[in-house]
């Protein structure tokens, strides 16, 4: 059997997950095409759920496409669009489709997207959603009714170490652990100092021993993208050093890759981290290069090859038909 993301994290491996944004159409091939950049590189592929409140191919549908491709998806599920009935039903549905990794999020507010006039649901918040998912794996709905065949879920949550107040950010992580989260993916790190400070507090509380923390890394193409994020994405801090480096760079794309690789290398020195969550927004094709340069591929090659290959061969044969 191949190692799942859960196995890898539980066995203490340093993992790499990557984020894939589904298309704003019903073109499933776009997901297939983008996912090729992650093959044999990412241990899990997050599929965003109507990110920034813009309608897209649903996370579960795109994840199913990845499963068909022999990849391992992580479904992102937000409380913005669903009430407790839909959330629980989606958790059952994904498990039935053979997708077991879920990232529970509150979701961006609807006014940021292309349907600002929509009604935001927010029936549950992310902490409660994590707790609800945990409860379901134990065989109970929120109503207290029993589930005959409970879903198998590997439950994750998000953390933003950069938004104030810093102490509450650690507390919220503790709360998510208490609720039943098994892994955490953080907001993109553009401010290593602040991240290290957050991690120090996390270690002081001993939280890194209870949960796998995956630090977010986002490669950027231009200084404009950085400035946009600093201005328009609340709760994001970007160190001045990175901005000035991108400004001065003659080849901003090269510099972007360099910064991402350096960030990963510095993050790996921080104690208590168990992986990197790569967010190559609209730039999926850069993933192999970043993985290569930051030393992820070497590790993969040195570790014994999984039995994935025969399956893959069979899969490509099927596709040939």
């Amino acid at each position: 059997m191949t190692m799942t993301l859960k196995n890898k994290i539980e066995s203490g491996q340093f993992v790499l997950t990557a984020e894939l944004g589904p298309p704003r159409s019903s073109k499933g091939d776009s997901v297939r095409k983008k996912s090729r950049h992650f093959r044999d590189i990412a241990d899990g592929i997050n599929i965003t759920d109507n990110q920034t409140a813009i309608v897209r191919l649903p996370s579960i549908a795109a994840s199913k496409i990845l499963v068909e491709e022999g990849l391992e998806p992580v479904v992102q599920i937000t409380c913005r669009d669903r009430n407790r009935l839909a959330l629980q039903s989606d958790l059952l549905g994904m498990s039935a489709l053979g997708i077991h990794n879920v990232l529970c999020l509150t979701g961006d507010y609807q006014s940021f997207g292309n349907h600002p006039e929509a009604k935001g649901v927010f029936d549950l918040d992310s902490v409660q959603l994590i707790a609800a998912a945990k409860r379901m794996t134990q065989g109970y709905f929120l109503s207290g009714d029993q589930i005959k065949t409970p879903p198998h879920l590997f439950i994750g949550g998000a953390a933003n170490p950069f938004a104030p107040p810093l102490e509450f950010r650690v507390l919220r992580l503790a709360k998510k652990i208490k609720a039943g989260a098994q892994f955490i993916q953080t907001q993109a790190v553009f401010d290593l100092e602040r991240f290290a400070e957050w991690m120090k507090r996390v270690r002081d509380w001993g939280l890194h021993e209870k949960i796998a923390i995956l630090a977010g890394v986002m490669p950027v193409k231009s200084v404009k993208a950085l400035q946009y994020m600093e201005k328009e994405v609340p709760g994001m801090t970007i160190s001045k050093d990175i901005i000035s480096r991108m400004e001065k760079a003659e080849k901003p794309k090269e510099e972007g890759v360099k910064i991402a690789v350096e960030t990963i290398q510095k993050l790996r020195e921080i104690k208590g981290l168990q992986g990197i969550h790569l967010m190559p927004l609209m730039w999926e094709s850069i993933t192999p290069r970043i993985a290569e340069e930051s030393g992820f591929l070497k590790e993969k090659k040195s570790s014994p090859r999984s039995e994935k290959s025969p399956e893959e061969k069979q899969h490509s044969r099927e596709k040939g038909k």
């Binding site: 507010y109 935001g120 918040d125 509450f168 507390l171 919220r172 709360k175 709760g235």
Partner: peptide, 11 residues
């Protein structure tokens, strides 16, 4: 967002 368990990541 009527959150009951702490701030969202957007502060």
């Amino acid at each position: 967002k009527r959150l009951r368990n702490g701030p969202c990541g957007g502060t």
